[in-house]
């Protein structure tokens, strides 16, 4: 075997491949011929100025929005026309830029519902779900993983903003996804929470493929194995963090003031 793929993160057949994706809102082109491959392990960051179309891209991958043209392949199959819930079943988990935890459910129950999604049928009517160890134990483990175990019994609506972000992550992890789509998981978190979340993402990337949209450049360059830069819906560069940092087009369009 001459050409074994190199065993490093970022290698192997991509878990996610976008081909010529396009999306317009009225006259505004928000996704402009985007092609992108995400490796089956590690963090692939998507950066770009406000309104560049990052969230819209995440929406198209997760299935909340349909692209006007182009194709999306995930885990070896075309998912361009699958609805959101079918994509989730295939192993696509997402967090929301605006947190979307269930405010009336406890933190534990939020995660337990995610475990339930992968634990056989939910058309079960007799046993109280809140008492099922088979759901609660993995849920508790996911809460521990993100450092939220002590707050398990608290209603999600009563958690702090940073804690809600942690909970979003725990929910996504409980789905045991093949790919995590994270839309600004650090937004609005305090400095300590940010540090904790960065450490967590650093640990997770060994086991998961993560597509990370983030404005915090320090975090991005500390974590990412690959970076893609989106400006006005167009991918202007994609590659290793060091190469992106040095790219003159990126510096001119975006990193100018930072770098």
């Amino acid at each position: 075997m001459a050409d074994l793929p190199p065993a490093r993160p970022g290698a192997g057949t991509p878990i996610l491949a976008l081909e010529g994706l396009r999306k317009r809102f009225g006259g505004l082109t928000v996704t402009d011929d985007v092609s992108l491959a995400v490796a089956p392990r590690g963090i692939h960051a998507v950066i770009g100025p406000n309104g560049a179309g990052k969230t819209t891209l995440i929406h198209q991958i997760s299935g909340t929005l349909r692209p006007d043209a182009g194709r999306i392949r995930f885990a070896g199959r075309e998912i361009t026309h699958l609805p959101l819930h079918r994509r989730a079943r295939l192993g696509l988990a997402r967090s929301f830029q605006i947190t979307a935890v269930l405010p009336g459910f406890s933190a534990l129950e939020n995660v337990a519902l995610a475990v339930q999604a992968g634990a056989g049928s939910s058309f079960r009517f007799f046993r109280p779900a809140a008492g099922e160890a088979r759901l609660n134990e993995p849920a508790m483990a996911a809460l521990e993983q993100v450092g939220l175990a002590a707050r398990a019994a608290v209603k999600a609506g009563a958690l702090s903003h940073g804690e809600k972000r942690q909970l979003e992550l725990a929910i996504a992890l409980a789905l045991r996804p093949k790919l995590l789509l994270l839309d600004e998981p650090l937004a609005g978190a305090g400095p300590e929470e940010t540090e904790r979340l960065i450490a967590l993402l650093g640990r997770l990337k060994a086991d998961y493929a993560i597509l990370l949209v983030e404005h915090d450049m320090q975090a991005v360059f500390a974590l990412a194995d690959a970076v893609s830069v989106l400006v006005y819906g167009r991918l202007i560069a994609s590659g290793a963090p060091a190469a992106i940092r040095a790219d003159p087009a990126v510096r001119a369009a975006y990193l100018g003031e930072d770098a």
């Binding site: 609805p83 819930h85 997402r94 269930l102 999604a117 929910i171």
Partner: peptide, 13 residues
Amino acid sequence: RENALRVAALGFN
């Protein structure tokens, strides 16, 4: 009831 989008994102129709 609380958030249909969240529930769909978990894989439930």
